[in-house]
Nucleic acid binder design. Sequence first.
DNA 1: AAGGGGCCCAACCGCAGTGAT
DNA 2: TATCACTGCGGTTGGGCCCCT
Length: 328
Amino acid sequence: MARSPCCDETGLKKGPWTPEEDQKLVAYIKKHGHGSWRALPKLAGLNRCGKSCRLRWTNYLRPDIKRGKFSPEEEQKILSLHAILGNKWSAIATHLHGRTDNEIKNFWNTHLKKKLIQMGFDPMTHQPRIDIFSGLPHLIALASLKELMEHHPWEEQAVKLQAELAKLQHLQYLLFQAQSSLPICTEMDTLHFMDSISSLKDNPPFNNSTNLLEIQNPQTLPPLGAGFSHLPGLESPLDNIKEVVQSNSKFLVLSQGDNSPTSPWLPSSLSPSPRLLPAASARMLNEAMATNPEEGCSNSSCGGWNNIASFWPDQLLVDDPMFHEIAN
DNA sequence: AAGGGGCCCAACCGCAGTGAT
DNA sequence: TATCACTGCGGTTGGGCCCCT
């Protein structure tokens, strides 16, 4: 297909816009609307290509643009949406009033991506990174421990290093959770949690058809931190959940796509295996579904709100700070 | 005070998608 | 159906600013 010449045309100005150019563009659009972007520059008396004009307007001059620093709420929203939508900046921008896709993209690339990396998470998958280099400083520090090096056989050292690395990664995770004010729950936690629950003889197993787990005798729940015996001295964050579960007779369980704090679920990974849903993400998606009931998710693996709703009963209520999903 | 390096963000580039003919 | 014109989007760039030495 032949490409339109647009910005390749010679003689058209490129680079930063002057206040005079801005003024001409704003005045023209206010009076006539933008109409055809290609025709606009000549009509508005600008020596720019239409594409340049469109970008200047949509990313900078539009009157409804919100400028300034991103709030913590906006930051959290971007993280959650990115976990669901990926680099669909325009789709993310539709959920942040007054923010442009370009602005969000820049904010992601300059702040949030680095933040996730520093916390030990892969910014694309939102999952904890398991590469050994993320724990390298800690390992180097360990290696300097003379006693460890001198008095323990290599096999034992390897086990200790492995345990330390696991601790480090888990601590990174907890640190991130604390900073982002999200509920604490890893996929590993979830699996241990569900294992604990399904092992109860007196309680019915998870019901796949209703996504509902009824706990008749919550007092009989086993210690939920049991799954963390491989990390001596580390308490399971699931202890926090225990109280919630025990104080309610019903507990709604939804599918979660991965074990990231910012990835609430991925519809493509829905499975009979029940998972927990981070509260903040669930609440945000509930809001999105309520405000844009007609809108479909642009992610091809998603299939739109209707698909989600089929896995997400109307009565779902998620409350901070932990998993207060109560099915009425 | 100077300059070097890193950061930030507006703007550009090129591809994909869509509608008209 | 093929082609064209146009818009929208995501990745990338580069210039200005700021901070540190």
